[in-house]
Design a protein around this nucleic acid. Structure first.
Lengths: 117, 117
DNA sequence: ACAATATACAACCATATGGTTGTACGTGCT
DNA sequence: AGCACGTACAACCATATGGTTGTATATTGT
C-alpha cells in the first residue's frame, strides 16, 4: 500500500487541523463507514447548531477529507479515503524515521556470523 | 503491529493539533530521526524567537509526542514513537472503516459459485 | 402559489493560537 | 565572583477558531 503524501505544508496543516476536533473526527468516521449523510442529517446528531456543523463539514472539505455533492435540495457528504491515506502515510513516514535509527544495528545483528578469515 | 489508541477525545484533539503545524512536524521529524536536540539547538534552526520554539515544544510535549529531560543547564528533547503510533493507529482505523464498506461485497464475490439445489 | 425544508452566508462574540519582547533564575566557565 | 548561556514564564498583540443568531435563496410537496 504505497501512498505518496504529495501535499504542501499548508495542506498538511489543514489536514491535521481538520482531524484535531472530536466532532469532525466523528463525522469522518461516519461518512467513511458509508453513512449516506446530508449536512442536516449530520447536524441532527450533534448538540450544536446546523451552522456549526456546516462549518465543521467545510473544514473537512477544505482539508480534502470529504466532498459534497448536491442531491436535490440537500448536499450529501462523502468521505475521501485517499486524503485519509495521505495523512496516515505521513505519520507512518515519521514512524519509519524512528525505526530507521535502529536499522543499522538490526542489520548487524541479522548478519550471519562471519567465518574466520 | 497492534497499537491500541487508548486516548480520550481531548488527548486526540491535542495530538492532531500538535501535528497541524509545519514547524512542529519538522521538530518531530528531527527528534524521531534521533537528532540529539536541546531546545536552543532546535530554536537555532527556525526563523523565529527562542520563546516561540519553546512554545512549540511545549505543545508537542502536551500532546505526548516528545519528552524533555534536563542535561546540565539545557533540556534535551526526545521523541516518543508510541504516541506517534497511536495517532497513526487511529487514522488506520478510519481507513479500515472505509474498506469495511466493501468487505461484505468482497465476501460475496469471493464465495465459490453455489451448486443448484 | 405557498409553506416547509436544506443550505449558504454574514455578522458577531469569546477564547485559543502563534508570534513577540522583557524579566527572572539556574548552570557552567574562567 | 562574575558573565554568558539555556531555560522558564509573564504580558502583550493580531489573527484564527468554534460557536451563536439572523437573513436570503433554492428545492420539495400539497
Amino acid at each position: 500500500m504505497v501512498v505518496r503524501a504529495d501535499l504542501t505544508d499548508y495542506e498538511l496543516d489543514r489536514l491535521f487541523h481538520a482531524l484535531a476536533d472530536t466532532t469532525r473526527r466523528d463525522i469522518v468516521a461516519r461518512v467513511m463507514a458509508g453513512e449516506e449523510a446530508s449536512v442536516s442529517m449530520l447536524a441532527g446528531r450533534y448538540s450544536m447548531s446546523f451552522a456549526a456543523v456546516q462549518k465543521h463539514v467545510a473544514v473537512l472539505e477544505e482539508a480534502g477529507l470529504v466532498t459534497k455533492y448536491p442531491h436535490g435540495r440537500e448536499r450529501i457528504v462523502r468521505g475521501n479515503p485517499q486524503q485519509l491515506a495521505r495523512a496516515s502515510a505521513l505519520l507512518h513516514q515519521l514512524e519509519q524515521l524512528w525505526s530507521a535509527r535502529f536499522s543499522q544495528l538490526d542489520a548487524v545483528l541479522a548478519e550471519p556470523p562471519r567465518r574466520k578469515e
